[in-house]
Simulated scan of single mutants.
Amino acid sequence: MTTTRAAVLWDEPGTFNRYVDECCGICCEHLNQHLIAAPFYRGRYVSLIIPTGFANQAYSRLLPGLRAASERIERFVENGGRLLVFGAADERPGAYDWLPFGVEYHFEFGQRRLAVADGAERYIQLLDGYDLDAVETDGFFPAHEGEVIAATPEGQAVIIRKTVGKGEIVVTSTHEYPSAKFMGTFCTAERETLF
């Protein structure tokens, strides 16, 4: 028996929440920067999702909450949770310093041609239905401690992943909604994990 459940971390519920809930058919809860940092909050999810622009103060105030909850996020993933993080959409360094592994991000909008790493079929489903010769992105990861899933022919990593304990983290700078097929797989597991 499996369960499908996700939480979208953002200041207020928005179109991404509706996409996950209505288009992907995934039971989706909204979490904001106050809840994730509150020690009394307890929720159970298969995956946590952080949309594009989380570090850009013009769009979101989520980054301080992510930093305050970094140990909690790491524990969630170590215990079997899954984390999907999109582009920071900000030039300042350190936007991913709350993750349990090193990730540097270069902010730069553009279409990029992507090559998929061998054995990465499960993760490249993120872009199912998109033209891999012209994927909208908001940057790339010039340095990281993860495994490259997709990169440009020049070697600019656009999708990376990392196993942490029993769970995993996928970080992507793709500036498109993830496919419903990928979301269905990524947000489904045999059990939920306590956050």
Rank of each mutant, 00 (worst) to 15 (best):
R82Q: 10
F16T: 13
H106E: 01
Q125F: 06
I26K: 06
I160Y: 03
T185Y: 06
A6R: 03
P153M: 13
A189L: 12
G80K: 07
L48I: 13
R82C: 07
D118P: 05
V170F: 06
T163E: 09
A6E: 04
V148I: 15
N56E: 08
E29L: 02
I36S: 02
H34Q: 05
V85P: 10
I149S: 08
E147G: 02
I73S: 08
Y45N: 04
C28K: 04
V171I: 10
H106G: 00
E190D: 13
A150F: 04
H106Y: 00
Q156M: 03
R5Y: 06
G167M: 01
M1E: 15
E168L: 06
R61D: 13
R67K: 14
L9P: 06
V164D: 11
E154L: 13
A115Y: 03
S47M: 09
P64A: 12
A6D: 08
V164F: 12
V135S: 07
E12Y: 08
Q156F: 02
A120F: 08
P178F: 10
L31C: 00
L62N: 03
V164P: 10
A134H: 09
L66W: 13
L31G: 00
F86C: 09
F186C: 04
F76A: 12
A134C: 09
G53Y: 07
L62W: 09
E71D: 12
G119I: 06
N79I: 10
F86K: 06
G94F: 03
N17G: 10
A37H: 02
R44D: 13
T174M: 04
L194I: 10
G65I: 10
A117H: 03
G102C: 11
Y105S: 00
R75N: 13
C24A: 15
E145H: 15
D138A: 03
D118C: 04
E147D: 14
G81R: 14
P39R: 05
G65T: 11
D131Y: 11
F140D: 01
A68G: 10
T137D: 05
R61Q: 15
E108M: 02
L62C: 08
L194H: 02
P13V: 02
C28H: 01
A38Y: 01
V103E: 01
G110S: 01
T152R: 07
A88W: 05
G184M: 05
A89S: 14
T4F: 04
F54C: 11
E168Q: 14
G139L: 03
A150H: 07
K162D: 05
T4Y: 02
T15D: 12
Y130R: 15
A180V: 14
R75Q: 11
V20H: 09
A134Q: 09
F141H: 06
D128K: 15
D21I: 04
E154W: 07
I50T: 07
E168R: 08
I169F: 09
V103A: 05
A115R: 12
R72T: 06
F54S: 09
A89P: 04
T188P: 05
V164L: 12
L63I: 05
D131M: 12
R44K: 09
R122Q: 15
F86H: 14
I124W: 02
F186H: 08
Y130S: 15
W10M: 11
A134L: 05
F86W: 11
T52G: 14
A157D: 00
A38I: 00
